[in-house]
């Protein structure tokens, strides 16, 4: 009997380790609710990508339900979600604002020409300061902001069809009501 118990030890050690790993994995960035959700979206005043002399500010969008999409021409996952955004902008009445993150203006413009432009406006965050304010982990990320300028939802990583139809769209409809 004593021997049986001894032979169980490796298994028990493994279970303890596995328990920690489960907790560790759940501390994944995606699982951490952003501290910004339910809070006012950080203010910004940034130049328009297509007209750098024009400064776009967050208050320009007050009273609208809008999406802030963080993108960059150097980001591969952005290519993945981009067609979805283009399609979404065509078929739905939603304001999508692009935050062109740590990018060169020429690259960004070329990218929009090539893949289509779903944004009412894209602002240039060349040094990534606004990205820091928004707690951007990586590109792409998308924020859903309501009429009062409060962040209601944050998508880390590329937007998927599923996220769009099951989470973002219902939320937009609800907020617009």
């Amino acid at each position: 009997m004593k021997k049986k118990l001894l032979l169980m030890i490796p298994l028990l050690v493994f279970f303890v380790l596995a328990g920690f790993f489960i907790v560790g994995l759940n501390r994944n960035p995606r699982e951490i609710p952003s501290p910004l959700i339910g809070k006012a979206a950080p203010a910004f005043a940034l130049p328009d990508l297509n007209a750098p002399e024009k400064i776009v500010e967050i208050k320009d969008f007050k009273g609208q339900v809008w999406l802030l999409n963080v993108w960059a021409s150097w980001c591969v996952s952005c290519r993945e979600e981009h067609p979805l955004l283009v399609e979404f902008a065509k078929t739905h009445d939603v304001t999508i604002v692009g935050l062109n993150y740590k990018d060169k203006a020429a690259d960004g413009k070329a990218w929009l020409r090539q893949f289509g432009n779903p944004y009412v406006v894209s602002v240039m965050d060349a040094d990534g300061r606004v990205g820091i304010d928004y707690g951007v982990y990586g590109v792409p990320e998308t924020f859903l902001i309501d009429r009062q300028g409060v962040i209601q939802y944050k998508q880390i990583g590329a937007i998927t069809d599923q996220a769009l139809s099951e989470i973002i769209l219902p939320k937009i409809k609800e907020l617009k009501r």
Partner: peptide, 13 residues
């Protein structure tokens, strides 16, 4: 570094 900035966000908010 990311955790520090997250915490700062929370505090500021």
């Amino acid at each position: 570094a990311a955790a520090a900035m997250d915490a700062a966000h929370k505090a500021r908010v």
